[in-house]
Design a protein around this nucleic acid. Structure first.
Length: 800
RNA sequence: GCCGAAGUGGCGGAAUGGUAGACGCACAAGACUCAAAAUCUUGCGAGAGCAAUCUCAUGAGGGUUCGAGUCCCUCCUUCGGUACCA
């Protein structure tokens, strides 16, 4: 079959018939299937995209035949670094580059035969789209959830851009792999931490894979503990308090020193009292130079400097303890200060060993000469006054009561998740709807003035002083204050990559609305997303950010559902033929457009879904794909076996029913590989029988349709069917009056001996009778049967 | 270190605690052909046997069970995530 011709033909027919069009407020049950919209980068799509999109594609194709009103949309996450870097590299304005790339990728997607509803195509860089991204920011600002503050940020010297923690994991820039350094900057933050608890608790109700939930939980990083007010004293006189965060307030009697982060404000406050301030300053400087990554790398070798001249006071024992600064304590977590209990914390232990500090055990057991002893399960308190004899959990509780009673401490929940650093010094992003006025301060752009359009510029490369290129566009930057009408300047930073993708699934439900981000009625009809498939790499950032925005919009009353995604699944990577991750440097990248040219989109999709379990990574094979090609050719030749029988042959009913059942279930559980193998088995069986009816063939083609839609449509037409498959109804199981026969395995002492063909639902007694009459099996039971395990329709096991 | 996933033929991979290796690839033999390709048929975990058949076999070692690739314990390896988070 000429795949090029028939694929083009059916793509045109589907488009003309508008079969993938999602109808608002239709009476049919709705199904909203979502895939992660692609970045329109210059290199086009990757074979991984094809796999990623194929799950919802297959499910959507089936669901439409099953009578669902399916929303399966597509769009472009076009702001952000990949596009901008491409534009800079090729010296093309980002707008032009984006449009070119979109055009190219759109062509690739259409050629691949995806059943997207193109009427709902969105583009995050379209001003009608980012108007609403800006609008959401305005609401966040109004609710006090967006703020600007000075902060140490991850800064990539090569890209000249500030990165979020998510974009600089491991201290490496996400985009260019350069080493990230720390820099102090005025940064916009979104208070995602205010939603931490809800983001965490919401997970329980969601149909996400457990590992996805675990990663999100870990990312949010909730820990329960206590803040305890230690004292600071100078010359034996208490002058201040120093609050620490601990999850182990039960060990308060074991504190032998304190540690604060190098940037902790007490150093500046008491610099006059610190005798070795020069040494301290030197340490602060060296810590600043180290990126967060370096700190981690050096985690075996603890460093620090004692703050001589000031001491900490343990509020329980009133003992004086030394205070150190050390870079193993982070300013950004807890209070930036800790109480150190070397006997029961590995880090404190290492530090104490190095600096010769006392190690005082407060939990029985272990050998503190060798290592810190940690037993939160069964540990029993010692050397701890009123806690002695209690187990750790009980001691925690009692200590906390004591602290709260004496007003020297309180229960405290902390989250590892930091507020979301929400700006970049780049051109290709959403401008902030923010104006700075000398008189009025920070002023929001009024809603009627949205969108704040991104001006066309000549110089879109990042400038070397770390400022956004927008800062150089005087006529854009200088504006009137919306409040007082006086001279004012616009915010020149832009929003990060994740902004536009944090709410795009909402826009799909009402993409052309110019009054609101989406009408509530349409959100109510389509939302929430029934099934969202995407990559494991977006589980912690994109998924959490978008859940946060959705929750916020829910609180505002704009969105009628709190959680945006009912169900989430993840595809495994397509690895290179050598088993490694595909990469240009390894030269193992497979160009899927070449595969389409050679084999067609149907064979490509069939093979991608057949090669392994959908959710696990699997290597590409240019040999194995032949099997899928041959399979379709075999199906094509099956035409010659079609007889004149009007109906389903009695002998084929069971087989066909099983196929319908299997394919339907497998598609619903992403087991595409076994669905396809069942289709193959069916064909093999038909070849054995050498006949099938037209109806059998037609239903087979319907089942094949989600995986090889063009081919199935073409074959269906050749069979003489007047109705397109895309407009047909998904096959259902037929009444089966035939006596169902099964092969029942017979085990003797747990070992398989024989298969006997029996009627379905046969009784134990009848089976035993058959066994007695079976020449071979009778021999085994000649010595008498001790015990019989009979599992109806499954197995019989004879213990002799 | 911690969290998660996984280890099954020559290869990709199937198996609600119940026939291990479905389906496909590769390979071999046969049919068709002048020949090749394509196609069709058959075989294809290892060992023993003319054979029927038997024994062994799902990373290693234990255990639970009538029965374990699947559940439990200990360990090894690989991959992914994460990390001085107090």
């Amino acid at each position: 079959m000429e795949h090029e011709k028939i694929e083009k033909k059916w793509q045109e027919i589907w488009e003309k018939e508008r079969v993938f069009h999602a109808k608002d407020f239709d009476n049919k049950p709705k199904f909203y299937g979502l895939i992660e919209f692609p970045y329109p980068s210059g290199v086009g799509l990757h074979i991984g995209h094809i796999k990623a999109f194929s799950s919802m594609e297959v499910i959507s194709r089936m669901k439409r035949l099953q009578g669902y009103n399916v929303l399966f949309p597509i769009g472009w996450d076009a702001f952000g670094l990949p596009t901008e870097n491409y534009a800079i590299k090729h010296n093309i304005p980002p707008r032009v580059a984006t449009d070119e790339n979109i055009k190219n990728i759109k062509k690739q997607l259409k050629k691949s035969g995806f059943s997207f509803d193109w009427d709902r195509e969105i583009d995050t860089t379209d001003e009608n789209y980012y108007k609403w991204t800006q609008w959401i920011f305005c609401q966040l600002y109004k609710k006090g959830l967006a703020y600007k503050s000075k902060a140490l940020v991850n800064y990539c010297p090569s890209c000249d851009v500030i990165l979020s923690n998510e974009e600089s994991q491991g201290g490496i820039c996400d985009r260019c792999s350069s080493q990230v350094v720390q820099k102090e900057k005025e940064v916009w933050f979104l208070k995602i931490r205010e939603y931490a608890e809800r983001l965490l608790n919401g997970l329980d109700k969601l149909d996400f894979p457990e590992r996805v939930k675990e990663e999100q939980r870990h990312w949010i990083g909730r820990s329960t503990g206590a803040e305890v007010d230690f004292g600071i004293c100078i010359n034996n006189k208490k002058v201040d308090k120093l609050t620490v965060y601990t999850t182990r307030c039960d060990t308060l009697f074991g504190v032998t020193f304190m540690v604060v982060a190098p940037e902790h404000p007490i150093i500046e406050k008491y610099k006059k009292s610190i005798e070795n301030i020069e040494e301290v300053r030197a340490y602060q400087e060296s810590a600043k130079k180290k990126s967060e990554f370096d700190r981690i790398q050096l985690n075996k070798d603890k460093t620090g400097v004692e703050l001589k001249g000031i001491k900490g006071i343990n509020p329980i024992t009133n003992e004086e303890v030394p205070i150190f600064i050390a870079d193993y304590v982070m300013l950004g977590y807890g209070t930036g200060a800790i109480m150190a209990v070397p006997a029961h914390d590995t880090r404190d232990y290492e530090f104490a060993k190095k600096f010769n500090i006392d190690i005082k055990p407060v939990i029985k057991g272990g050998d503190i000469e060798k290592e810190a002893y940690i037993d939160i399960q069964d540990g029993v308190m010692i050397n701890s006054d009123f806690l002695d004899g209690l187990k750790v959990e009980e001691a925690k509780k009692k200590m906390l009561e004591y602290l709260e009673d004496k007003k020297i401490g309180q229960a405290k929940v902390n989250y590892q998740m930091k507020d979301w650093a929400f700006n970049r010094q780049r051109y290709w992003g959403e401008p902030f709807p923010i104006i700075y006025c000398d008189k009025c301060g920070t002023v929001l752009v009024p809603e009627e003035d949205l969108p704040v359009k991104l001006p066309a510029v000549k110089e879109f490369k990042p400038s070397k002083n770390g400022e956004s290129p927008l800062a150089q566009v005087e006529e854009w930057v200088n504006c009137k204050c919306p409040k007082c009408g006086g001279k004012a300047r616009r915010e020149t930073d832009t929003m990060p990559q994740w902004a536009g993708s944090s709410w795009y699934f909402l826009r799909y439900m009402d993409p052309h609305n110019d009054k609101e981000l989406a009408s509530k009625d349409k959100l109510k009809y389509w939302g929430p997303v029934d099934w969202y498939n995407g990559g494991m790499e977006h589980v912690t950032r994109h998924l959490i950010y978008s859940r946060f925005w959705n929750m916020f919009l829910y609180d505002l009353g704009v969105v009628p559902f709190e959680e945006p995604y009912k169900k989430r699944s993840t595809q495994g990577l397509v690895l290179g033929e050598d088993g490694n991750k595909m990469s240009k440097s390894l030269g193992n990248v497979v160009d899927f457009t070449e595969i389409i040219d050679k084999y067609g989109a149907d064979v490509l999709r069939l093979y991608i879904l057949f090669m392994a379990d959908y959710e696990s990574a699997a290597p590409w094979s240019s040999k194995n794909i032949n099997g899928c090609k041959r399979f379709l050719e075999r199906v094509e030749r099956m035409t010659s076996l079609v007889d004149k029988y009007d109906g389903v042959h009695g002998e084929h009913i069971t087989m066909l029913n099983e196929l319908i059942n299997k394919v339907t279930n497998d598609i619903n559980t992403l087991k595409f590989n076994t669905a396809i193998s069942a289709l193959m088995t069916f064909v093999n069986n038909i070849y054995q029988d050498k006949y099938l009816s037209k109806i059998e063939f037609s239903e087979f083609l319907q089942l094949l349709y989600p995986f090889a839609p063009h081919f199935a449509e073409e074959m269906n037409e050749r069979l003489g069917n007047k109705t397109y498959i895309c407009k047909s109804n998904w096959p259902v199981e037929k009444e089966d009056n035939s006596k169902k026969m099964i092969n029942l395995p017979v085990q003797v002492n747990g070992k398989m001996k024989e298969l006997i063909k029996v009627e379905f639902d046969i009784s134990k007694e009848e089976v035993l009778k058959l066994i007695e009459n079976n020449e071979k099996l009778a021999g085994f039971i000649a010595g008498g049967i001790k015990k019989v395990i009979f599992v109806p329709n499954k197995i019989i096991n004879l213990i002799v």
